[in-house]
Computed example of a mutant assay.
Amino acid sequence: MDEKKIETIFEQEKVAKVITCPQAFAIAEKHGIPKTAISGYCNTHGIKIRACQLGCFK
């Protein structure tokens, strides 16, 4: 997955330092991005995922 695409989407969605799990799921579905790509981007860029459902994001 293109990191630049996720970066642009996060800027549009106003995600900076924290994202909730439901937000991450919605962004993934809306833009056709695998949840693992969202998780990887967040881990790499120090973005915390809060209110995680089922431990899908680490």
Score class of each variant (00 low, 15 high):
M1A: 11
M1L: 13
M1W: 02
D2F: 14
D2A: 13
E3I: 04
E3Q: 03
E3Y: 05
E3F: 00
K4Y: 10
K5P: 01
K5A: 12
I6E: 05
I6N: 03
I6A: 12
T8Y: 08
T8A: 15
I9G: 12
I9P: 08
F10M: 10
F10Q: 10
E11Y: 13
Q12D: 10
Q12V: 07
E13K: 14
E13G: 09
E13V: 14
K14C: 05
K14R: 15
V15D: 11
V15I: 15
K17F: 12
K17D: 07
I19D: 07
T20S: 13
T20V: 13
C21Q: 02
C21V: 01
P22S: 13
Q23P: 11
Q23K: 11
Q23A: 12
F25V: 14
I27P: 02
I27R: 01
I27V: 10
A28C: 10
A28I: 09
A28W: 06
A28R: 01
E29T: 09
K30I: 11
K30H: 10
H31D: 00
H31Q: 06
H31K: 09
H31V: 00
H31Y: 13
G32L: 07
I33L: 06
P34K: 10
K35R: 11
T36W: 06
T36Y: 00
T36H: 01
T36I: 07
T36D: 06
T36F: 00
I38Q: 04
I38E: 01
I38T: 05
G40Q: 10
G40Y: 01
G40C: 06
Y41R: 03
Y41H: 05
N43W: 00
N43V: 10
H45L: 02
H45G: 01
H45R: 12
H45M: 04
H45Q: 07
G46H: 02
I47H: 03
I47G: 02
K48D: 09
K48N: 11
I49L: 07
R50M: 13
A51K: 12
C52E: 09
C52Y: 04
Q53A: 06
L54W: 12
L54Q: 14
G55S: 02
C56L: 11
F57T: 03
F57Y: 06
F57V: 00
F57E: 05
K58E: 08
